[in-house]
């Protein structure tokens, strides 16, 4: 059974169909890419899947249940976490606090327990700290845990955003142009890391990417979006040779 299934998803902004008839099916454990020229509606599709926008028509099923009408935080709690194309960290907070916030909805202690530091407060806070540091270690950010997020170099900010998304313990991870602004060497490292976290955390990943080498190198299956509609899907090899894709990317190097 598919983990995520979007059927005939459409959204209209002031008469303009930003995404129309978007059909995607992702099985558990897959690493799928979503590519397309600029303005094709990739990020809009992500925003539909994560509840930032409500679809004008269509269905989204995650883990067998519809997520249409849910708020973004509810969808995250169901098990979809994401990163953003233009990094959205909690800029003025420490690296550690950025990751701690992702644990928020797993925490069980209540308001009164927090206000008087009683009950489960101490035990759970210690656990959160321990787990958060573990994630930072995985992403080689542990020695920077007390730094303010916005002071990190760009590449580390990207890594922190992924670490934070993973700390929410999702089943499905959506990465929006994770390699944007990275140099080839950093991109290479990122590819390896994505493969590794997928295995390590038993994740399903859908990633938007502009960098063709990354998508072709890392994804098992690729969807191509153009003018808001899926125009092709298949293995990287199939996509590379698909005439419609080449046409859509005319002028761009595939």
């Amino acid at each position: 059974m598919a983990l995520l299934k979007a059927t005939k998803l459409s959204i209209v902004f002031g008469g303009l169909r930003a995404v129309s008839n978007f059909n995607v099916e992702i099985a558990p454990g897959e690493l799928v890419g979503l590519i397309g020229p600029n303005g094709a509606g990739k990020t809009t599709a992500f925003n539909l899947l994560t509840g930032v926008y409500q679809p004008t028509e269509g269905q989204i099923e995650f883990d067998g249940k519809s997520t249409v009408g849910l708020k973004p935080y509810q969808i995250t709690q169901r098990g979809i976490a994401r990163t953003f194309q233009n990094i959205r960290l909690f800029a003025d907070l420490s690296v550690l606090d950025n990751v701690k916030i992702a644990y928020h909805f797993h925490v069980k202690y209540g308001l009164v327990e927090s206000m008087f530091r009683i009950g489960r407060y101490h035990k759970e806070e210690a656990e959160i700290e321990e787990k958060a540091i573990k994630f930072l270690e995985i992403f080689q950010l542990a020695d920077k845990k007390d730094e303010i997020a916005k002071n990190l170099p760009y590449g580390e900010q990207r890594r922190l955003e992924i670490a934070r998304a993973l700390a929410a313990q999702p089943k499905l991870l959506l990465l929006d142009e994770p390699a944007a602004g990275m140099n080839p060497q950093e991109t290479q490292q990122l590819m390896e890391m994505i493969r590794w976290i997928k295995k390590e955390f038993n994740l399903t990943i859908l990633l938007i990417e502009h960098d063709m080498s990354l998508v072709m190198g890392v994804c098992e299956r690729i969807y191509v979006l153009d003018y808001g509609s899926i125009i092709a899907q298949g293995t990287p090899m199939e996509i590379k040779n698909n005439p419609r894709v080449i046409e859509a990317y005319l002028g761009e190097e595939v």
């Binding site: 953003f84 916030i101 206000m115």
Partner: peptide, 27 residues
């Protein structure tokens, strides 16, 4: 105490970036 707890951090995340806070599962 409230601020130093997960509830307080949730509040601060709203201040820092509301969209990211929602995406992290904060109501």
């Amino acid at each position: 105490n409230f601020i130093d707890s997960t509830h307080g951090r949730a509040c601060i995340s709203v201040r820092e970036n509301e969209i990211a806070a929602e995406a992290m599962g904060v109501d």
